[in-house]
Design a protein around this nucleic acid. Structure first.
Lengths: 203, 203
DNA sequence: GCGCTCAAGTAGCCACTGTCAACAATGTAT
DNA sequence: ATACATTGTTGACAGTGGCTACTTGAGCGC
């Protein structure tokens, strides 16, 4: 498809094609060396063509990272809506979905959290990341309203949950949570501990 | 000092000098672009001299990462020995030391967890990382023996703690735990929740 | 239809990096 | 002293990214 004979001179939507190709490359191998020229090669265009749509490589990576955060947020939202009624099961389900997203897309997940901050585009990137954070906030907010979550500063509790799943995901991606050393279900153990800690004492 | 006129032809201990220079560079700026040539430049030797001591760039990075893990382990051990008697305070102290190590050495910490795995040197690297893991294991083991920690598979609990501090550290390094959004002490909240979850119900 | 402008794609140059091979300087064993 | 091993230097090569000038295609007013 990439070299269809009647491919028009103007690609039409090269921007989207570049993004799709890059996402494919990220999906392939964890340790893939990401080069713009390789992206262009796979997209079937010349090596400088992407520069018409992205000012530089960092801009493309930032765009990919933002897409990743958007997808992660959608994944979590979907998992939340399918979760059972129990708040505890809901948290467990969403956490599992989070870690699964990371282990299913290791290169993308790594990229999402390795994009340079402090740049102009970094602000928007952080916005996307904080949207993920808000999904967790909402659950805890409901839990507090229902009385099954302690009435503590909610941001700290959400940060705890985010930090936990983020850390577990990164360790899993790096192959540091090998089952022999760590037991069969470390995430479950971690979540149990955390949820019980978050839970109100009466429960 | 790097261009003393009577600098001998042979550096004397270039291997150590390269490592020190590289660590200095990692300490300087978080987003620093790490190049072997720049290391050699700063060390005052030719651009290819480091190859007499490291087979390639990855080997140097792996060495730096191992040093980082060793230092982290020492930091945690030191914090542990200075901690108060209470197991809970001990966990809090060591966790704080962990996160502080990460935020104090952001580039080094990032490097430690971004070195490629599956390589030949990756095995040794993982050994160092698991040594850090063992510090956490030991605390929990004592806690279980004392009865203040639930008698659950201990590796899962340690993985929970490791994942938590690792995740909090990474988020902090990436500037995603901005105080306005997250409260003043998210780590404390997280640890409270986790410790209470780990703690035995009678406590 | 004609010529104009402009977007989209191409080709090539420069700087820089990692890496290797050949050479030079130093120390060491015999 | 002589041969050798070690360590550092120089020069070179391929690969990469950023930048600029050039070419091709398409839309527009007339």
């Amino acid at each position: 498809m990439q070299d269809a004979p009647n491919r028009p001179y103007h690609h039409g939507d090269l921007r989207r094609a570049v993004i799709e190709t890059a996402l494919d490359m990220l999906r392939e191998e964890k340790g893939w060396q990401f080069t713009l020229r390789e992206v262009a090669r796979r997209a079937g265009v010349s090596h400088a063509a992407p520069y018409k749509h992205f000012p530089d490589k960092a801009a493309l990576l930032a765009e990919l990272a933002m897409i990743g955060f958007d997808r992660l947020r959608d994944t979590l939202s979907a998992a939340k809506s399918e979760a059972p009624n129990s708040l505890r099961d809901e948290i467990t389900t969403i956490a599992r979905a989070y870690v699964t997203f990371g282990t299913d897309n290791p290169a993308l997940y790594r990229l999402m959290y390795s994009a340079e901050d402090g740049q102009a585009v970094g602000i928007h990137l952080n916005e996307r990341a904080l949207a993920v954070f808000d999904v967790l906030l909402e659950i805890l907010r409901r839990g507090q309203a229902a009385g099954s979550i302690r009435k503590r500063p909610i941001e700290g509790q959400a940060a705890a949950g985010w930090g936990l799943v983020h850390g577990m995901t990164m360790l899993a991606i790096d192959g540091l949570l090998v089952p022999e050393k760590v037991g069969s279900a470390p995430l479950d153990a971690a979540l149990s501990a955390l949820v019980e800690g978050l839970g109100s004492p009466a429960t």
